[in-house]
């Protein structure tokens, strides 16, 4: 029998839209503004989810594919990437054919050194963004689902200690992304988004009971699935559970 089409929201949401939301959250100053940008994205996701799955029962789709990129420090399903700034720096120097003793290569390798007035000292992703900007595609084409698939491949290749395939899967990810998307990808891989918003705030905007359910389960997917509907309270869920 034909497999039912596995329609997921994440397979239809461009990664670029998540990145522009993260960019707005990071750049605006006040907490209410920051949470508004996150809430706008989340509300759109939930409305689209309801429309996409309107005739379906037992839907397992949820905000999890996006939430795990917004809170990468809470990732439990995917193993470590085994990638730090220095490895990324060397990969970009090779990929972009940067002269080894050139200015841009030095910026990437010495990203912790104070330089320039932009105040991006120590922020490898920001420094990489300015190096990548003139050299990256202007239009990204990955969906959130595809980004998660590439990150799965990177984590699996790292676990298999296959450096060659790890580099290959990382290249597939970055060569299909704009400089802005790569800035956020780097932060997701390094697991520090520098959003200026706490995990608690993200949880409280997602659902009043999300922080508590995560404390009990430490399972981000379970939090996103069981509290997908903001009108469902944790007590309802626990009754359903037992």
């Amino acid at each position: 029998a034909a497999q039912p089409s596995k329609k997921t929201v994440a397979s239809r949401v461009p990664f670029a839209d998540l990145c522009s939301t993260l960019e707005r959250i990071q750049t605006c100053k006040s907490r209410p503004e920051k949470t508004k940008h996150f809430k706008d994205f989340l509300d759109s996701w939930r409305k689209f989810h309801d429309a996409l799955h309107q005739k379906e029962k037992d839907v397992t789709d949820s905000f999890y594919p996006a939430m795990r990129l917004i809170l990468p420090q809470l990732e439990r399903e995917r193993m470590a990437y085994g990638i730090k700034e220095t490895m990324l720096a060397k990969l970009y120097i090779e990929l972009l054919n940067l002269p080894k003793d050139g200015k841009d290569a030095a910026k990437l390798l010495n990203y912790r050194m104070p330089a320039g007035s932009r105040g991006d000292t120590g922020d490898f992703a920001m420094i990489a963004y300015f190096v990548l900007k003139p050299r990256s595609p202007k239009q990204g084409r990955l969906t959130i689902e595809q980004v998660n698939e590439h990150l799965d491949a990177i984590a699996n290749n790292n676990a298999a200690k296959n450096k060659g395939l790890l580099k290959k899967s990382l290249l597939q990810l970055i060569t299909q992304s704009t400089a802005l998307e790569q800035k956020w990808l780097i932060r997701m891989i390094i697991k520090d988004l520098k959003l200026g918003v706490s995990q608690q705030t993200i949880f409280s905007v997602f659902h009043p009971d999300a922080a508590e359910l995560h404390n009990v389960t430490t399972d981000l997917e379970k939090v996103c699935r069981q509290l997908h509907d903001p009108s469902v309270s944790l007590s309802d869920v626990s009754i359903m559970l037992f």
Partner: peptide, 16 residues
Amino acid sequence: DADVPRWDAFFKCNKL
């Protein structure tokens, strides 16, 4: 996919 809803009908992303 004709009747499948579209993401850009739910999320307006003014380019940065």
